[in-house]
């Protein structure tokens, strides 16, 4: 499936082909520590066991302050 991921910290938007199942799988694939990001889909914060669907758009919000 194809999904879009916006990373707040890096200020990047990636279109990726994803073959995993859950948000946890996605973060693992992106090598992102779930302790330092919140995951938002359709303006809702979601947790790791949520299923990823084709054409999903995710925002990864940095938990760590930049200061």
């Amino acid at each position: 499936m194809n999904i879009t991921v916006y990373n707040e910290r890096e200020k990047t938007t990636l279109q990726i082909e994803f073959n995993g199942k859950t948000v946890t799988d996605l973060l693992k694939e992106l090598k992102i520590n779930p302790e330092v990001f919140l995951v938002v889909r359709n303006n809702e914060v979601i947790i790791g066991d949520e299923t990823v669907h084709d054409n999903d758009v995710f925002e990864l919000l940095s938990v760590v302050s930049g200061g």
């Binding site: 910290r9 914060v45 940095s62 200061g67």
Partner: peptide, 15 residues
């Protein structure tokens, strides 16, 4: 971070 987000506080990520 989650609390600030859910409460709608305007916080932009700056480093």
């Amino acid at each position: 971070r989650l609390y600030a987000l859910l409460k709608g506080f305007q916080v932009q990520f700056t480093e």
